[in-house]
């Protein structure tokens, strides 16, 4: 707990019992934990000192978790955000992740699982991505053009606005165009989850990518290979 190298974690949760349990559990797992009980409190804490990662409850009173993620990303904070949801409807996951969160967990969850994912996300945060861009580096696949230096994505002439995690997923898929990547491989390459974990976060983000890439009727680029994974290629 007093380890100066311990990653600085911000837990945002309105329920006092859950907050206390998480604070204790995460601290015992080697994080330096700060906490906030509502949205404005979370933003104040970030303003004070930018944490290394954020664990954010979606169902906050007043300013909810989605608004907090949106505000964080609008302020150009790239910290990994894992949202916690008490609902298991797809809608909730969509709003949290669409706003720019990196992963989600549905309550009640295993603390060890949360810790493992946070550690992985933190590793990805400090280590440069395996495909560090050099100036002028461009990945192209069909109508898709990714400018790695400027971090911009174009489909044809249209510029596509992606969240950080969506962008990273797309880069991995585009660099491996015509190669089928399993969900496990994508979790490892994009999220750094090199351990077995039960999540459909890849599918959710692939869904977002498709929606954004195909917004103007562009034919599907990211294809599902049933029972295997995903592949980016032109045509069927």
């Amino acid at each position: 707990m007093s380890d100066p190298a311990a990653p600085d974690l911000l837990v945002v949760e309105d329920d006092a019992d859950v907050r206390a349990s998480l604070e204790r559990g995460l601290a015992l797992s080697g994080f330096a934990v700060r906490s906030a009980q509502d949205g404005p409190g979370a933003l104040r804490a970030v303003h004070e000192r930018v944490p290394d990662a954020v664990v954010l409850d979606l169902g906050l009173p007043g300013m909810d978790g989605v608004a907090v993620v949106t505000a964080l990303r609008a302020m150009d904070h790239d910290v990994p955000v894992c949202v916690l949801s008490a609902r298991d409807t797809v809608d909730d996951r969509v709003v949290g992740l669409e706003a720019g969160a990196d992963d989600y967990m549905v309550k009640p969850f295993a603390l060890t699982e949360l810790v493992a994912r946070l550690r992985a996300l933190l590793r990805r945060g400090v280590r440069p991505a395996p495909s560090a861009p050099s100036d002028g580096d461009v990945v192209a696949a069909g109508p898709l053009r990714i400018d790695l230096a400027r971090r911009t994505v174009h489909v044809g002439e249209r510029s596509v606005d992606l969240t950080k995690r969506e962008y990273e997923l797309l880069v991995v898929l585009a660099r491996n165009a015509d190669v089928v990547l399993t969900r496990e491989r994508l979790l490892e390459l994009v999220w750094g989850y090199d351990f077995a974990t039960d999540t459909n976060v890849v599918d959710v983000f692939v869904g977002y990518l498709r929606r954004k890439l195909e917004a103007d009727g562009t034919p599907r680029l990211v294809h599902t290979v049933r029972g295997v994974g995903f592949v980016l290629r032109e045509g069927g």
Binding site: D15, V18, A20, A86, P108
Partner: peptide, 8 residues
């Protein structure tokens, strides 16, 4: 919510 706290 309480189950999350309990499990943790």
């Amino acid at each position: 919510t309480p189950l999350t706290a309990m499990r943790t």
